[in-house]
Design a binder for these strands. Sequence first.
DNA 1: TTTTGAGTTGTTCGA
DNA 2: GTCGAACAACTCAAA
Length: 481
Amino acid sequence: MTASSTATDAPVLVLFRTDLRVADNRALMAASSTGKPVLPLFVFDQESDGTRPLGGARRWWLHHSLAVLGKQLARLGAPLLLSRGRMEVVVDRLISETGADMVLWNRRYDPTEIAVDSRLKASLRERNIRAESFDGHLLHEPSLLKTGSGGSYKVYSPFWRALVTQGEPRDPLDAPRKLRGGKVPASDELDDWALLPTTPDWAHGLRAQWAPGEAGAQDSLAAFVSGALDGYGQGRDMPGVAGTSRLSPHLAHGEITPFQILAALKPASIDAPSGDIEKFRKEVGWREFSYHLLFQNPSLAQVNFNRDFDAFPWAGNRELLSAWQRGLTGYPIVDAGMRELWQTGWMHNRVRMVAASFLIKHLLIDWREGEKWFWDTLVDADPASNPASWQWVAGSGADAAPYFRIFNPVLQGEKFDPDGAYVRRYVPELAKLPAKYIHRPWDAPKDILSTAGVKLGADYPVPVIDHSLARERALGAYKSM
DNA sequence: TTTTGAGTTGTTCGA
DNA sequence: GTCGAACAACTCAAA
């Protein structure tokens, strides 16, 4: 503590991490209501033990979201401090530089992050510095929601019923009107963190699609509630149309909370059919379920939830993995998905399932390879949803897809992208093919191919593996376990 | 303790 | 073209 600070004038530190917002921010609100000077601090911690470095797409998002948050906080009267390093080290340094006697934050739920924050809280309290944490990232506390016999849930439906039975989620908080700033110590420069890609700059597709930051999140929510929510039950499966909320990257960065989302879905205030609303609420519930699973299984991204799968005979072919990553498998719906991911940092959920199933079941490549690729390329890469979903597709996860559910990439394409709009957008070399052949160009007669300007094997690959063969091989592999 | 009902998202085959 | 059954048991959660 500096000699000049008194108890009443000592500032309160508010830690920002995965909660890049000022509204429905309980830690910020609590800090504001103390009447003390508020020092918002973003800690970029890639060093604490067990931390998984942020992927490239999320680094890009983080840069822009921090720029937005910095402006918002400056406008409210308390500029955002940026500091990089181990959480405890950074916080200790700021306490000694500012004389802060209180540290507040919103809880994180990755087990590694829980451990970091628990140690921080204990060490602060030991030194008589007030330390409090708040909810916001999740509707439920994974440590508190239990089955009747005291265990954790492993099946989604009873989990969701239990969550609903907890009662209505709390109302979201407004943003503070004004913050009392304090003396501001030196901050890092955002640009010095080099979060943006330079050589090459691959982010132009991301810039065209996304508006990182709290305002962008609220705009997406409002557009969804007054638009695609009506018909969501059907529209959510059609990658060629804008039928989903596209809130995932905003949620992953805490630019919006599930409390805000559910409040916007109150049936009284909107016209959409209750079935569509319930369907979307349950999707929010899947995110909660994933965190529930991660809390019980800290190694969810590394270890099979069902250990029987440790014996699965993966093939692990680097060339095929690379073809999948680059969107060159020869299956248009898979390739469109993988290219959407590469170009925009996001992939439609229906196509995620098809592309993931293809990697795992057609190519017999370990789901962890896919999980890693998604972690690096998704702007919504989430420590819970990403591994939980990959394990779900693999069949090793909780409440997982049965082994015989092997997506047929042609049928999936024809069913959910019937006119081929999605494939045409992301696989332009096939854009001129008629809908009848857009999902299986290898069946197209020669004259149709040449009219469409497609030479298979030259402009677009022939399938890297035959579907029926792959299916039989996968069924055999699963039976062999 | 035992029982019971249920369990996100599909495909293929044969009638 | 359409429809129902088979694909396989197993584990979970609650009564």
